[in-house]
Every structure is written in C-alpha cells, then in structure tokens.
C-alpha cells in the first residue's frame, strides 16, 4: 500500500463530492453554492480519469468525458453567474434565501 492506487482516487473524489454537496446545501451565498457545484463536477472528473487509467489504460473515453464536463461546467458557470447578477440587480443581495420566487 505504498503506491497510489485506484482506491486513493476514489476516496479523494468521494470526499470532494460530499464536500460539494455539503457546501451546496448549507451555504447561503449563491457564489459559494456555484463553487460547490464545481466541486461536484470535478469529483466526477477525477472518477472518470481514475477509472480510465486503471481499468482501461488503452482507451480515451474517460478523458473525452472529462473534457466535455469541463466545457459544460464553464458554460454553466457563465449562465449561473448571469442569473446571479440579475438576481442581485433585483434584490440587491445574492443570498439564496431571498430568491424564493420558484414556489409561485
């Protein structure tokens, strides 16, 4: 157990994932919530790359998926920030408690 194996990566990605979930559920600040979402996505990326490297070393599928996810994460961040800016303009706050209009 002196070499870094698949398990280490999985432990890392799982911790990252739950840190992300915890952050998303507890933080009020929309920017921090957005950052938590990024953590979730990146934990998945780590999973993809780790499985690709240890289970199918000759293939590229996992790498392609992570590249896709990075791209989508970038786009998502852009959209989310646009929404946050608009919310701020409206409510003069980026506290998620102030954005309750979803129930109507």
């Amino acid at each position: 157990m002196n070499q870094i194996g698949l398990t280490h990566f999985l432990i890392l990605s799982t911790s990252l994932f739950f840190i992300g979930v915890y952050g998303f559920l507890t933080r009020r600040n929309l920017i921090v919530m957005l950052m938590s979402v990024e953590l979730l996505l990146n934990s998945v990326n780590i999973n993809f790359l780790a499985f690709n490297k240890y289970l199918y070393p000759g293939k590229m599928d996992g790498i392609f998926f992570s590249i896709f996810i990075i791209t989508i994460a970038a786009a998502e961040a852009a959209v989310a920030i646009a929404i946050i800016i608009n919310l701020y303009r409206r409510h003069k706050s980026i506290d998620v408690e102030d954005a309750e209009a979803l129930k109507d």
């Binding site: 998620v96 954005a99 309750e100 129930k103």
Partner: peptide
Amino acid sequence: IQSGRVQNYAA
C-alpha cells in the same frame, strides 16, 4: 414542501 428554496429542493 413547495417552499421555493433551491437548497430544500436539492436536499
């Protein structure tokens, strides 16, 4: 249940 809070929905 329909509180309008994103975090509740996520939970």
